[in-house]
């Protein structure tokens, strides 16, 4: 159901990184709420490349990026004994390193301007099930990363939260209400209406 709401993100500038399919719906929701949105399609894991993406985004949005969404890279289900080190490393690099480097670059730029900011990760769901060794491991690491960064950056006015959900992992397979709620919740969490929400990792309907 579409409800005309007041714009929650007027004057804000968002970089939406990562290539999980839910990222597009979130980018659209942020724009609907008045944010200038720049998409970084690839899930970069190289620090200079990430810094360049921020610089380009700030130029294109005509100002400092004060919202970072990182949608991550969906991880395929696989039997742990068949993954192998190369695939294991590549998967975790895309999902963990990339997010950490984006968050750190985001905050360095925020600190330089003493501006508030909000970060939101779309994360693998916490569900433990066969074939989920890699996403479950990433979930655990990211869960603690979010909570640690929330405390480290709280007094800088920088919040970080996460939506850990099957809707983020398999957007096309989710119900329409779940897809819309993911986008609405994302927009709410990065807005000042959620100014006291930080270090929160929640789902949609896990």
């Amino acid at each position: 159901m579409t409800i005309a709401t007041p714009q929650w993100l007027q004057g804000r500038r968002a970089l939406v990184a990562g290539n999980a399919p839910g990222a597009e719906a979130i980018a659209a929701a942020l724009a609907r709420h008045g944010a200038a949105v720049v998409r970084a399609g690839t899930a970069a894991t190289d620090a200079p490349e990430i810094a360049a993406a921020f610089a380009a985004a700030e130029q294109s949005a005509d100002g400092g990026i004060d919202i970072l969404i990182h949608a991550g890279t969906p991880m395929a289900a696989a039997a742990p004994q068949d993954i192998g080190l190369a695939a294991w490393r590549a998967t975790h690099s895309a999902d963990i390193d990339g997010r950490f480097l984006h968050a750190a670059e985001f905050t360095r730029r925020r600190l330089a301007t003493a501006g508030r900011g909000a970060i939101l990760f779309l994360m693998p769901s916490p569900v433990i099930a066969p074939g989920r060794a890699a996403p479950a491991t990433a979930h655990g690491a990211l869960d603690n990363l979010v909570k640690s960064l929330a405390v480290e950056w709280a007094r800088d006015g920088i919040r970080i939260n996460a939506i850990a959900s099957h809707v983020a992992e398999n957007f096309a397979g989710a119900a329409q209400a779940e897809q819309e709620s993911l986008a609405n919740l994302a927009a709410y969490l990065v807005s000042d209406y959620a100014a006291y929400v930080t270090g929160c990792v929640m789902g949609i309907s896990e």
Binding site: V167, E180, S181, L185, V197, G203, I204, S205
Partner: peptide
Amino acid sequence: LAAGITGEVLVIDG
């Protein structure tokens, strides 16, 4: 706005 959200806990504690 949260029509698809159920069974979840939202923490708001700064």
